[in-house]
Amino acid sequence: MRVLYFAWVRQRVGMAEEEISPPPEVRDVAGLVDWLSGRSDGHAAAFANRKTIRAAVNQDFAGPDHPVAAGDEVAFFPPVTGG
């Protein structure tokens, strides 16, 4: 699974992307956030306030209940501010 980070989520995690192999009990976006939070202090800081985090799975916006699986591209970022 490829995970991408953008904006201040990237700054806090300390990297733009990583390849991960989460355990099988990680089934959805919320579960992935829980698992990622334990990977480093940076990850924990990035995901400390879940309300400020948005996600996309395979380049579509996805809520916490959206399933994730091996081979997916999952991205985490703050609410968008374009335009």
Partner: peptide, 27 residues
């Protein structure tokens, strides 16, 4: 289109100020 671009497309703005301070624009 411009209303949806602001909320539905993955862009993020970081502001840099004179003096070196910076901050991410909040939604």
């Amino acid at each position: 289109l411009i209303d949806w671009l602001k909320t539905g497309a993955p862009f993020w703005k970081r502001e840099e100020f004179e003096g070196g301070a910076e901050r991410w624009v909040e939604a």
